[in-house]
Design a protein around this nucleic acid. Sequence first.
DNA 1: CGCGAACTTGATATTTGTCAACTAAGGTGG
DNA 2: CCACCTTAGTTGACAAATATCAAGTTCGCG
Lengths: 247, 247
Amino acid sequence: MHNPLIAKLEHGVDLTDADRGLLNDLIRQTRTVGARQAIIHEGERPDFVYLVLDGFACRYKTLVGGARQNMAYLVPGDFCDLHVAILGAMDHTIATLSPCTIVDIPRHAILDLTDQHPRIARALWWCTLVDEGTLREWLLNIGQREAAQRLAHLFCELLVRLQAVGLADANSYALPITQEELGDTLGVTSVHVNRTIQALRDDGFITLRSKRLTIPDVARLYAYCEFNPNYLHLTKRENGTVNGHRL
Amino acid sequence: MHNPLIAKLEHGVDLTDADRGLLNDLIRQTRTVGARQAIIHEGERPDFVYLVLDGFACRYKTLVGGARQNMAYLVPGDFCDLHVAILGAMDHTIATLSPCTIVDIPRHAILDLTDQHPRIARALWWCTLVDEGTLREWLLNIGQREAAQRLAHLFCELLVRLQAVGLADANSYALPITQEELGDTLGVTSVHVNRTIQALRDDGFITLRSKRLTIPDVARLYAYCEFNPNYLHLTKRENGTVNGHRL
DNA sequence: CGCGAACTTGATATTTGTCAACTAAGGTGG
DNA sequence: CCACCTTAGTTGACAAATATCAAGTTCGCG
């Protein structure tokens, strides 16, 4: 079976065949979850670490008025919560966006693995640091860009992240997310997302049909929204270029 | 000398006297930095971990048009970058806001400490997880609240964080930050910050004079902006109340 | 084929930004 | 200790971005 976790980690650290074997052992028992199902609720203290193997999930919080903010997208290869062992309780909820395949990894399995295999420990730490860098970039995105660039930036990020796990080709990928959810991610309403997508289409930046996003000119979209993937720390990429596109 | 790092860590983990001694050894050599000086630049790979002992610093990124987003405030007791050992290069800049006292800790000193003292390792990991939780809360703040609540929420957070290191009393603290910088933190202009502060003043939520913020009715401000400090994971606080204020 | 969810559109309201001027405050040198 | 000078804070008028509400329309699926 394809292991997106390995595909992702190889971008951050060098793994041995033995490491790969151990990581493959982790994903023997999978389960599927329908769209919009909670995986971990705020306040819980789960005994498992959840790994997404297929589909899109997200972290989110809501305000009492019902406003919702998605704070991360979890795509195949992403862990839901490596660190929950340390903190007392989840300070946010994790839920699927599309139907997902996930793995429940007992906490002790992660702890054993990291205790005995420093390369893997380092790789997992690298994951949490990339997550943090992504969070900072999202803050910049929402705080300082306007809606069109915000959306464009998210589309660029997903292109790179999905390519890293073999789920995007050179300029397109499946995007199983509604406009409402994009709005909750970018801090705008779904109506405004709709209009913004149309503007990006009109300008030839993207096509988006039946949940597939295509970016005709990747370098042009990168330039438009000032996308620089350095915050994803995919270190094995050639310096100064991204997917062959010079910055 | 007062060690805000210890004060902060005691909220997350139990420390022994020996631990405290080791942490005090870290801060023997301090240096002062003027306001608005960079500590680490984006792209650098510093050999030190920087710890703030006095003053306010921040993480930020800028866009080419000059727009700036502050992505974290670093107050006394906060580390600038525990994790830089793992990632290749800084993906953002860290600079002082007010004049600061900081400590340069060689990377190996941190690594030695965490290798040999699991309680301290756990405490430092707790720090990075709190930072991440704070980042998520800021994303919610900027994405879903409007300016007045955004500002109020930041003021509440700083009250709790500064209390945790003994730098705020029950309802007030020194806030050495300009309205421009508040704007760059909250994703609004300084003009709008100004008007929003006046609105909060008019409604009796705050007084802010000569860089000192006072919150006459803390519980009322908490309620106004839906502030819940659980994301700061100050676990030793009584459940369900914050500084004696029932949520 | 029908039904519910997602998407689209228009009109209008609200929030926030921009620009430009002015006032107040703090710090420094004489 | 004062005068000045820079920076921070304040105000007003207006423009732009985004939200809200309400009504379609299209799409995907059973």
